[in-house]
Amino acid sequence: MKKLIALFGILLLGFQFAQAQDEDIFGIDSKAKSKTRKSQSNIGNVVRNAMGNFSFEIFTGGAFHMNEMVFTSLSPSLYPISQFQNIEVPQQVTADDTLTFSRNNFAVPINAAVKINLFNTLTLGAGYGREFGQMDNLRSGDFEFQFQQQSYTLDRAFGSIGLVLYDANKRAKFLQWKYRAFDSNNIMMQSEKNQRIRQIYPWRFIAESEFGNVYMRKNFDPLINTDNQSFFNIALRVEKEFSEYTKFFVKTGAEFRNYNYQTEIPEEFQTIGQNLFFAQFGLSISLPSTKRCKVPGCGVVMKHLHGGVEYRGSSIFHQQNRRVGQWY
């Protein structure tokens, strides 16, 4: 009996020693808590958690813009309107005429922005961009409204707001709703549901809008008034997550803005409405809320704990908690 008690005591000590080893290998805590700390200090922990909501992005693409001006004036001779066809039959624009001038062309925007994620539901941002475009002379029938040059360069200062329509979190809730009809004792269907929820879903769909002002750097005509030229756009944005901190995205939408062609004496103006239909692509990089692990001898490449503080073992361009087939 004494030998049996001694053997049991040895086994118990061995189990506790093995468990202690399992909990601390190179200082690694194997039992991650639901809310892990990102820093030893309380202030550092708050700052680190806030940092993870900020991201920086750069994007470019192309835009097809449609321009239209409904022209009516008491002094049409003040405007650079000429007849570009049917020259054999000279015509003049009079004060009684109403002409609709229009023309289409292309532009290339380059933008940079910073954004903040709010509860994985809303995104707020601000940015600055530059647009290089062509502005051909507008035409209406036999007449042409002429500009002094065909190219322009403008800057865009904008704010943005986005609404997350669908992502991994909403997919998980959708799957919970989809499998609600199956009994909790149905092991096969519950296992299928949990397996689908645990799958990595890298896509995110966002309805986004930008609004701000444009500032002409190279004007296509000196009589275009560039003061307080506002714009807004609406777009659908699709993101693909390469890692927790790196995303590639594309977005398509439409942008609306106006220009005023203003004469000096007498003071008149004509409004040129410009509608752009754009397709853009870019890269978004989030600030890492988790510090890179620098513990000597620790070769863990996934997220892990040292002394209750979470660290990452990989760069921001790799998945932190990788699955089979994601190691290379």
Rank of each mutant, 00 (worst) to 15 (best):
Glu268Pro: 00
Lys35Glu: 14
His65Gly: 08
Gly159Arg: 04
Gln85His: 05
Leu163Gly: 01
Gly44Phe: 02
Asn45Thr: 05
Glu192Gln: 09
Glu23Ile: 10
Gly62Gln: 11
Lys178Glu: 14
Pro202Ile: 09
Phe278Trp: 01
Ile316Ser: 09
Gly129Val: 05
Ser140Asp: 03
Ala207Gln: 02
Leu13Gly: 10
Tyr311Cys: 12
Lys247Tyr: 06
Ser41Cys: 05
Glu244Thr: 01
Phe231Cys: 03
Met135Cys: 05
Ile161Ala: 11
Ser191Ala: 07
Gly14Asp: 09
Asp142Asn: 09
Glu244Ala: 04
Val295Leu: 08
Lys218Met: 09
Ser243Pro: 08
Ile58Asn: 04
Thr123Gln: 09
Gly44Asp: 03
Ser191Val: 04
Thr36Asn: 15
Lys291Cys: 11
Phe119Ile: 13
Thr246Val: 15
Tyr128Ala: 03
Asn194Lys: 13
Arg322His: 08
Gln146Met: 12
Thr252Trp: 08
Asn117Leu: 11
His306Gln: 06
Ala168Cys: 11
Met302Cys: 12
Ala254Glu: 05
Ile87Trp: 01
Glu131Val: 09
Asp227Gln: 10
Ala168Ser: 13
Lys31Gly: 14
Pro76Met: 04
Val108Glu: 14
Gly133Tyr: 00
Val324Gln: 15
Asn42Thr: 15
Gln92Val: 11
Lys31Tyr: 11
Thr290Leu: 09
Asn275Gln: 12
Glu210Lys: 15
Glu208Met: 14
Phe232Cys: 03
Met69Phe: 00
Asn45Gln: 07
Phe231Val: 04
Lys247Phe: 09
Lys303Thr: 12
Leu74Val: 06
Gly14Leu: 13
Pro222His: 00
Gln199Tyr: 10
Gln229Arg: 12
Lys2Glu: 15
Gln149Ala: 01
Ala157Asn: 09
Ser314Ala: 11
Asp96Phe: 10
Tyr179Val: 06
Gly308Thr: 05
Phe232Pro: 01
Lys35Ala: 14
Ala279Ile: 12
Tyr261Val: 00
Lys178Gly: 05
Met1Asp: 15
Arg198Thr: 10
Ser77His: 01
Thr94Ala: 06
Val46Glu: 15
Met189Gly: 02
Gly44Thr: 02
Phe269His: 02
Ser289Glu: 07
Phe269Thr: 00
Gln134Asn: 13
Ile28Pro: 10
